[in-house]
Design a binder for these strands. Sequence first.
DNA 1: AATCGTTCCTGATAGC
DNA 2: TGCTATCAGGAACGAT
Length: 293
Amino acid sequence: MPELPEVETIVRGLKNKVLNLKIIDVWTDIYKNIKRPKNFSEFLSLITNKKIENITRLGKNIIFHLSDNYFLLIHQKLTGHLLYGQWEKDKDGHFISKIPGPLRDDPQNRFLHFILFLDNGFQIGLSDLRKFAKILLVKKDEFNTLKEIKELGPDPLDKNFTFEKFKNQIRKKEKGEIKKILMDQNIISGIGNIYSDEILWRAKIHPKRDISKLSEEELKKIYQIMRKLLPLAIKLKGESISDFRDISGQKGNFDKIRMVYRREGQRCSRCGTVIQKIKVGGRTAHFCPNCQK
DNA sequence: AATCGTTCCTGATAGC
DNA sequence: TGCTATCAGGAACGAT
């Protein structure tokens, strides 16, 4: 599922391909997922002929900076990922296939539900098995008022995000399980289920530990591991145990260093104890009951 | 104000 | 074999 490293992988991939291209058409079959404007014909007429001037990431959100001072926000949620490929329509504008040829081999690339057609003959397609992704087109000056955006905490990789700032963010909550706090997008934005599990295993801290009982040293450890592991995960192009793929449909390589996430029943690579799966804040958490205190 | 449960959705898997 | 029930999971939303 796309968290910070996966979203960053998509953004970097697209930035290499689509800057300064123009959106000439849109296709979708998930009208409900387009939250703004709600009326699709309005959405279509607004976005048509806009140029993609930049693409950035905010937490797990992908932001397309469009001409005429518009932002297109896409949140891929659980199973969405953006793909880039050459579109195939016949001369009447009908699809020969929604899915560009090279992407067809992998079932995870076949759930196309939203497509931006570009003026170079290529498309940006959203493959989203569970149809949870969200799409919003807004004026730049409305952007910061969006509920999806206005409460977002700082980005864990921002160079100004010092340990002091991290500590202050965590301490905004008086208590709570550390895993839940790390995944709270209003505290820090970008970490989800995979990387919270992986960070806490490396920090040797139990996912249910209450933040009120974490020492300064333990918090520092979490901070330092977070700042190292997320860039490494970006370098590996993310985690593809289930559905995530990069824009060319390829799997990421985080698997090579995945230590606990979805490894229940297997042995901890540090101490050999069997890794457990439990519920933390209503979500699954994976951890080593021996190493993580 | 903060926290909890529900909702969105569908492929994969377990159980019968 | 083929059916049904359960599960996964980010984040908004409604209820408490």
